[in-house]
């Protein structure tokens, strides 16, 4: 196969100690230290009041990363196809539904139910932006980031138009946390464009490969990369933050990995 070549026009990143790409990039380029702290997110201003009241962490997180990426590129979100990718969607909401269904009164909340679909953040995003373009929502367990990056890149390349990737994860409360420990919520958005425009921040080329995944030098960042599926993106984000060329291998499935060449 030949590599999939694209331009990164916009980046959004919110996670623990990573409060938006503008600040997070100074952590990733080594100019400021990384300190884990609780995730802080902007209010989901773009949602109508009724939807804003119903929005949980997964929705607020995807709004935050999506708008940051779109604004950086001065792109119109109403026109952008989207790929959402998450291992568990809104894990808190799922846990609450399971508790209700295990109780003596199984009347679940209608809002909790419609928020339980894996594509709930995609639905809220389309309502917030008025976007009627195609949108998909993926899951590939730990491989969820690479799966989303592949799908968004293929969509951009086959359509000849930009596509917005939003990859995010949230944490389960106990008891599911014990089986699927995701210590922090984290989300990353990349606006991918098959054409070079003034907004281009870097050129990337993707190829499936069988090589060892790139790790992070900083122990805390490596721990984050390893424990949150969406944080498998960190080696790529580090290259983008440093505005340097290089090649990283992002963890995909088993021995199948995704190599990304970056050129600023």
């Amino acid at each position: 196969m030949s590599a999939l070549s694209l331009y990164v026009d916009g980046i959004g990143l919110f996670g623990p100690g990573l409060p938006g790409w503008a600040q997070a990039r100074t952590v990733l380029d080594g100019s400021s230290a990384f300190a884990i702290e609780a995730i802080r997110l902007p209010a989901a201003e773009a949602l109508p009041p009724a939807e804003r009241r119903r929005a949980g962490l997964a929705i607020k997180l995807s709004m935050a990363i999506g708008f940051e990426a779109v604004r950086a590129a001065d792109a119109d979100p109403a026109l952008l196809p989207t790929v959402f990718s998450s291992t568990g969607g809104d894990c808190e909401n799922c846990h609450n539904l399971l508790e209700t269904l295990a109780s003596n009164d199984r009347s679940v909340s209608p809002t909790r139910f419609h928020n339980s679909v894996h594509n709930a953040p995609a639905g809220y995003w389309s309502i917030a932006t008025g976007c009627m373009a195609p949108s998909t929502s993926l899951c590939a367990y730990d491989a969820t980031f690479a799966a989303g990056l592949l799908e968004a890149s293929m969509q951009a390349v086959t359509s000849g138009k930009p596509c917005l990737l939003l990859a995010f994860d949230t944490a389960y409360p106990e008891p599911l946390n014990a089986l699927r420990p995701i210590p922090h919520a984290l989300g990353v958005a990349l606006l991918l464009n098959p054409r070079e425009t003034a907004a281009a921040q870097a050129k990337i080329a993707l190829q499936l490969c069988r090589a060892a995944p790139t790790t992070m030098a900083d122990a805390q960042l490596e721990s984050l990369r390893h424990s949150v599926p969406a944080a498998r993106s960190l080696p790529l984000l580090e290259l983008l933050a440093r505005r340097s060329s290089g090649r990283v291998v992002i963890e995909y499935i088993d021995a199948l990995e995704l190599a990304v060449e970056v050129a600023p």
């Binding site: 679909v117 894996h118 594509n119 998909t136 590939a140 969820t144 021995a255």
Partner: peptide, 20 residues
Amino acid sequence: TGPAYVVSTACSSSAKVFAS
């Protein structure tokens, strides 16, 4: 050993996999 993922977009899920 090739690429794989699940599309989960509620009741349109398994139509969209053809596009993927």
